[in-house]
């Protein structure tokens, strides 16, 4: 009985002693931290994806507290609302960056872009593209080994086995940019989400001249400039044999897509046009809808 008592008492004493030591040490070495960092961090999505350019949400919160002007800072995951809430805590003006979403600037499906060689090496887009242009005649388009899908931490991408291309699930995509960094061909772009999620963009990255581009892929941009001439807002520029639509200038008039001879311009999430739209195009739009 006595032993039990001594044990309990001595352990209790040790516990109290250790607690006291810890208390004094904690007091002594206390580091002052701006409490707002915690508050801001609580507003952030805690995804730690690095999409903002900082190593994790905490670092981003620190940066926000530190910076006088936070218009350059943006959390792509949380979007405008999160930024507004975080900025409210700090009494600063949030960035006006529009919400973006990742889009694939390539429509070289197995059908559109016939395979002329076979890759047999490590399953990595970077390794494959350091070795050669790709299995098809187009050395700019998607390699199709899914490095972007592996890089996506939000399950917003998957490889479509039929097309051989990655598909971006718009609802899940938080536009962190991990896929953009992962892609060795640089064909994923963070594009303005657009009103009602509607977007028009050139789904091609081929900088070859018209003839070889067309030979390699049925939906390649052949730089015929028809879209540029059609656009009344000067939103389309053809540079290095490739057309690009400026999302800021684009008014979504949808005049460019029908004139494209190769259907390289994609319209996302638009209601189907009353005028007959070429079959492949509607198919693509539907696929986009299905997610």
């Amino acid at each position: 009985m006595n032993i039990v008592l001594i044990t309990i008492l001595s352990l209790a004493f040790l516990g109290v002693l250790a607690g006291l030591i810890l208390y004094f040490v904690a007091q002594k070495f206390k580091v002052f931290e701006d409490p707002r960092i915690d508050q801001v961090e609580a507003e952030l999505p805690a995804a730690n994806c690095g999409g903002c350019g900082f190593p994790g949400c905490r670092a981003f919160a620190e940066a926000m507290v530190k910076a006088d002007d936070i218009s350059e800072l943006n959390c792509p995951v949380g979007g405008a609302e999160t930024m507004k809430a975080a900025a409210a805590i700090l009494g600063k003006t949030p960035s006006a960056a529009p919400n973006t979403v990742a889009v694939l600037k390539c429509n070289g499906t197995c059908e559109n872009r016939p395979r002329i060689t076979k890759y047999d090496g490590a399953t990595s887009c970077t390794i494959a593209s350091s070795l050669f242009g790709g299995e098809t005649g187009c050395s700019y388009g998607c390699v199709g080994l899914g490095e972007c899908v592996d890089a996506c931490k939000f399950g917003a991408m998957y490889m479509d086995k039929e097309t051989g291309l990655p598909v971006i699930i718009e609802d899940k995509c938080i536009s962190c940019g991990a896929c953009v960094k992962a892609c060795p061909k640089n064909i994923i772009e963070l594009r303005k989400q657009g009103p009602k999620n509607r977007r028009i963009y050139v789904a091609c990255a081929n900088k070859d001249k018209g003839a070889p581009a067309k030979k390699a892929c049925a939906t390649a941009c052949i730089a015929c400039c028809k879209c540029m001439n059609e656009c009344s807002f000067g939103a389309i520029i053809v540079d290095k044999n490739l057309a690009a639509i400026d999302p800021v200038k684009c008014k979504m008039c949808r005049k460019c897509a029908p004139v494209c001879p190769t259907n390289a311009i994609l319209e996302m999430n638009f209601p189907p046009k009353k005028i007959k739209v070429e079959e492949t195009l509607t198919q693509e739009t539907k696929e986009g809808d299905q997610k």
């Binding site: 090496g121 490590a122 390794i127 350091s130």
Partner: peptide, 12 residues
């Protein structure tokens, strides 16, 4: 295993 494939990538 594709050892050299990866090593080349890493070297780069």
């Amino acid at each position: 295993r594709p050892l050299l494939d990866y090593i080349r990538l890493g070297k780069g």
